[in-house]
Design a protein around this nucleic acid. Sequence first.
DNA 1: CAGTGAGCGAGCTTCCGCTTGACTT
Length: 832
Amino acid sequence: MSKNLVIVESPAKAKTIEKFLGKDYKVKSSFGHVRDLAKKNFGVDIKNNFKPEYIIMPDKKKVIADLKKEVKNADTVILASDEDREGEAIAWHLFEVLKLKNKSTQRIVFNEITKEAIKNAVENPGSINFNLVNAQQARRILDRLVGFELSAVLWRKVRSKLSAGRVQSVAVRLLVEKEREINAFKSEEFYKVTGEFVSPEGDRSFKAELNKKLNTEKDVVSFFESLTNPEYYVFDVEKKPGKRSPSAPFTTSSLQQEASRKLGFPVNKTMRIAQKLYESGFITYMRTDSVNLSSLALKAAKEVVEREFGDKYYKKRIYKTKSKNAQEAHEAIRPTYLDKKSVSNTSDEERLYNLIRKRTLASQMTDAEFERTNVTVGIKGKDYKFTASGEVLKFPGFLKIYSDKTEDTLLPVLNKNEKLNALYLEATEQFSKPPARYSEASLVKQLEDKGIGRPSTYAPTISTIQARGYMVKESREGVKKKVKHIILKDGKIKVKNETKTFGTEKNKLFPTDIAMVVTDFLKDNFENIIDYNFTADVEKQFDEIAEGKIIWHKMIEDFYDDFHQKVENTIENAERNAGERILGKDPVTGKQISARLGKYGPVVQLGTSEDEKLKFASLRKDQHIENITLEEALELLENSGNGRLLGKDPVTGKNVYVRFARYGAVAQLGDAKSDKKPKYAGLLKGMNIDTVTLEEVLELFKLPRDIGTFEGKKVVAAVGRFGPYIRHDSKFVSLKKTDDPLTITIERAEELIKEKREKDKKRLIKEFKEDETVKVIKDRWGKPCIYFNKKYIRLSAKVKPEELTYDDCIKIAEKELGSTKKTKKTTRKTKK
DNA sequence: CAGTGAGCGAGCTTCCGCTTGACTT
């Protein structure tokens, strides 16, 4: 019988600790918070000193029931949640919910999971720190009040189901302001001038760059023309040593950034894989803001570095956190066993583990040492200079393990005043770059720098602002621009025109129109809440609560009085905000033209609500309320429903357009207005609305195409919502990337059909005579499920899929679909 | 798949942080 029950937050941690503590201790986990504010009435009694009403979170009912059983069997309950504000609150909530007694309850903390630290903690128990608990309650209640009241204002003034909050609204604001900076950015052209120089003997050569940017083609040409019989020489050679130090071990945020940069992982993928590594016992906890390594880890790092690389690579380093608002309840993210070089066979886990291991070891290694050489090339009688720099690694230090793309750039040995010849000079036209858009990881970094959000919320925050329609993550093709390339060789100047792509974006975050409208609205009415310093300001006050200097509900009251007044004012006075921008007047009808958010997205509108008849046209995907011009709006209204006119179909004589539709780019045969039913065809991958030709589009209208018969049934090739496919016997088979629906042969189609049948057979677990459309099959992830009414219903692990009968399946399906089916009202459609 | 867009207004939505599975098409 174990006499002591220890409760920690994470089950993986529980397992480890149980090993350290021996038979008298049972270690269980609370799985994080167990209680939260009720939803009704905000879960806060505003008139009664903001008294919170807590309820057990629905998904924790079972956890609590289990813990209650364990409590009954224990003499002493030891609350061992994390050593921070949230952890202290968890301990208190457990105390309350489990109805613990002061006498038989202890509170312990440790920030290192080692046998020594835990034994030490158990031997020195304390009690719950209520100041810290109150600081957490203040944090929670403030977030609830701000979140729910602001969201409710948005529902009334902008659009239903929107959200706002202390963290997410600032994240959205960052995206919006960056986007506007980029839009306002005026790109300037300039010329980068470089030359290749060579010693008179021809044995040593190097490239160097002019120390001055030239702005126009004219400047370049006159500079080149001024170089009649130029005398180049080595003006200066400078050598100096350089050093680079390793970075601190990983925190959640820095891990997300590096995994994004080096492995191309989105933040949620990084966290999912890190969680796996943690659960398998390979790394320490992955949600942390600490850069601290335990004494044990430091010792292990020393051993591994000295063994693998030798003494002169080891250097003990202690890092201090720089991030605001850090709670440091955990260690930095590091391997649990540093000498373990490899962990598993899935390559993503392996790669992330390797990154963590190398970063940890590197953090305890010596500096990398360089020798940097700067060479300046002069021209006799001119002020212009060319410069080149080279870097040679003298001692790798930590770079031995944590490389940062450092290649030696070698310069030849050169002597001051030595003569040089130029093989050629060249000038390439460049454009100054606008500020970089945020990626997921760089947005997280920005939030962390401002002390907003916590390690456990970075990834969820990104998902939330995306789910609310404030942001899209996209890759966009750059714009092709003509650039000039001017070359001076053998005293002759040549000008070449070249094409270069600028501004290509890969997996970047773009704020939507609704994000701009909401941000402006919040800025106008709740400036202080989405101020970048708001979190830092309230954090200061939470700290004072934690130190017992101020009373938590007084702090909330001070904040809320003012805040709530603003909420009331806004509801009363602010106009409904659809982000309307008046663009001007229609030169034909004289009616007003405006751009705003419509029910289905951004639109331009002809006329005002007083006018009899309004006309609308949706904005294209690449157009925004922010910056659409009157001319563009007129064009949209003019072509409303049509799009870019490509020409006429030679057969029917009808107009052919390409336009954006609900699910992507389509070609359209016939006018939306005059023709009853235009014919549509989805564009193929690689076709672009701006570049596709009439000929290519006319080909598309040949689809669906009969390609022959197979087993006595017709085979048809076409393009659908999910791409090109063939249909046979009312079954669909997707085409492979290399197949073209316009040219695919019946032979190839047969192959694909057979392949699909084979695949389906492997997926099939069971089918029924009663109804052919109901099956038990494996889903995309290989998990057994019921296929019913074109939907997949996942089976719980307890059910044996092979033993299911038809009736069982129907029962499960009805239960699942019935319970999740929401009473969705169909919008009434009226036709005038 | 390839249209729609006001207002009418019932009943819904929403926050941040701490944790894992269960879930996804």
